[in-house]
Amino acid sequence: MKPLNYAILKHFTKVHEASVIDIMEALKGDYQSFKTFNKESIIDALLTAEANGLIEETRVDLDHNEELLIFYHANEESKATINGYIRD
């Protein structure tokens, strides 16, 4: 099994866009027992990936609790970079 941060990045190579909620839903089957599998840690991973140019913000919305929800995506160049470093 890949480290959680790798799984988060790989998720962006398979979807058009995703938010922290989408990622948690997609990865919970394999990663829900991980100590870092929580909203705050995943948001930190997303911000790090964005700062490193691997994903970019696409839009914002409000979740069911009226909290800000940020959506990200990986462009084709970023997907190629991610896939080049993290194999399936």
Rank of each mutant, 00 (worst) to 15 (best):
M1Q: 04
M1N: 05
K2Q: 14
K2C: 08
L4V: 07
L4N: 04
L4A: 03
L4D: 05
N5D: 11
Y6R: 04
A7W: 03
K10T: 06
K10Q: 07
K10N: 06
K10C: 07
T13L: 03
T13M: 03
V15S: 14
E17G: 04
E17S: 13
A18W: 01
S19D: 02
V20L: 01
V20S: 08
V20N: 09
I21R: 04
D22G: 06
D22H: 03
I23W: 00
I23T: 03
M24N: 10
E25L: 11
A26S: 15
A26Y: 05
L27E: 08
K28R: 14
G29Q: 11
Y31L: 09
Q32L: 02
S33G: 09
S33R: 07
S33Q: 06
F34L: 05
F34P: 00
K35E: 14
K35C: 08
E40T: 13
I42H: 02
D44S: 12
D44H: 11
D44K: 13
A45L: 07
A45W: 05
T48F: 06
T48G: 01
T48M: 06
A49N: 09
A49D: 09
E50C: 03
E50T: 05
N52I: 06
L54G: 04
L54A: 03
E57Y: 01
R59S: 14
R59A: 12
L62I: 15
L62Y: 15
D63F: 07
H64E: 15
H64D: 15
H64C: 12
N65S: 13
N65C: 12
E66K: 15
E67Y: 11
L68Y: 10
L68P: 06
L69K: 12
L69P: 09
I70S: 07
H73C: 12
H73M: 11
E76A: 04
E76K: 08
E76S: 10
K79G: 02
A80R: 05
I82F: 01
I82D: 02
G84C: 02
Y85W: 12
Y85A: 11
R87H: 14
D88Q: 14
D88H: 13
D88M: 12
D88W: 11
